[in-house]
Write a protein that binds this DNA or RNA. Structure first.
Lengths: 225, 225
DNA sequence: AATTTTTTTATGGAACCCATACCTTTTGAT
DNA sequence: ATCAAAAGGTATGGGTTCCATAAAAAAATT
């Protein structure tokens, strides 16, 4: 795994909690940035790429909820909500908006750390939806198939691995080297072949690929759109 | 609801957790009996009828797993497993043996309570309906038969066990190893054969299975829908 | 003992993986 | 604009692993 320093944004209007979180997490080798309110948080979100946001939902105004909503819509950074003490899972607003976990106040820092780690583990494998639509194809990585019209084609293990990776980063160019690492192949021509076959399964017109495209001299990209 | 006092058996070798669970659940009007190990638990199970067992899977020896297996075979009391912290649903061994839920350590007592209530609600209505429709087949696990058109085929004991488990987790991939544990078989080829015969009974076109599918290199899945 | 169920084994075949050869397209130098 | 070189596409084939299943033996039930 390439990255192992994580940057966390802690948003809370209560100084004590902000400081507590900051200190504890820094002791545990995270980089922590704090924000006092939603506005402050948004500004920082525009500048820095965070790995996790810890957000007190009970800040003045409905700003906590709104922020959750916005973040999930625009950038999809994992969010842990800090909630009032009575709240149970079913009650926590904000989970609807896509928050990843919650923690009722008062909490033990250790508990927070645990949830952070939990999420970071999941983040490795961002959760892909069961069905991914690409053009007129529907990719189902669990059922290992791709449907187009009435045809259903199977996805083999190699293809699965590649799709998983590329679907996680649509628009990112994968060099042959990158792909080689994913499926453990060295020869360039071989990788071409694998891509070709994938195209047969995804594209409407494999000769003029619309989604799984070649970037000459660089590699391949997958566009979902 | 006829019964409204429930008796819970908490099995854990860790005193602190045992006491925590006992105290918390008693505060919430359950009767709680504790056991330190599988042997202890089994003795108590012979004397008392419990409504739920809470079982630490990580006790010395594989005793936790074995206990799950035995309980499910002989008396089918709902079981909640306490698992190591990393475990995700797909990873938790023991669910194959029929455990009803699991909770990763460390857990909040409140969360445990929630799951207990959850299970007690379900217990009323048997988890699997009497008749399960799969494609044009109707599986009746009580009458031990499968009907298609005018044909009625018998389900044998092995097949029943497999169906019960797989029907509980449709879409979950069961490795041959998993299935082996369910019906107590080691040889892979043997399991193939069992699956093949199950297909004959479930599928419209057993050679092109639609519901009981092979995942090459991984195992088998059952899709209901 | 008869029947059903379970297990083993052997065999064929499917799916997969990798590489290569040959072809087409793109690029850039002239 | 032409042409050679570079880059990419793909049909094909062989090796390999993995799986399905028939057939029959063994075990368990009735």
């Amino acid at each position: 795994m390439s990255k192992n320093i994580f940057h966390i944004l802690a948003v809370d209007d209560d100084d004590r909690i902000r400081d507590l979180v900051k200190q504890y997490l820094e002791e545990n080798n995270f980089i922590v940035t704090t924000a006092q309110n939603a506005k402050d948080a948004k500004e920082k979100l525009e500048i820095i790429k965070f790995d996790i946001i810890i957000l007190d939902i009970m800040m003045p105004g409905e700003s906590g909820l709104m922020l959750t909503k916005e973040v999930k819509k625009n950038m999809n950074v994992p969010i842990i909500l800090l909630t009032a003490k009575g709240e149970t899972r079913n009650r926590v607003e904000g989970l609807e908006f896509g928050a990843d976990d919650y923690l009722a106040k008062p909490f033990e820092p250790k508990e927070l750390l645990l949830r952070i780690k939990n999420i970071l583990n999941k983040v490795q494998k961002p959760i892909l939806p069961e069905e991914i639509h690409i053009g007129s194809s529907v990719i189902n990585l669990k059922k290992l198939n791709i449907k187009r019209k009435n045809e259903t084609k199977k996805i083999n293990p190699q293809e699965k691995k590649i799709l998983e990776k590329m679907l996680k980063y649509p628009g990112k160019v994968f060099s042959r080297n990158d792909i080689g690492k994913i499926i453990n192949i060295a020869k360039e021509r071989t990788i071409d072949v694998v891509i070709t076959r994938l195209r047969q399964k995804i594209e409407y017109d494999p000769k003029n690929p619309k989604y799984l495209q070649t970037i000459r001299g660089e590699g391949y990209v997958l566009w979902i759109e």
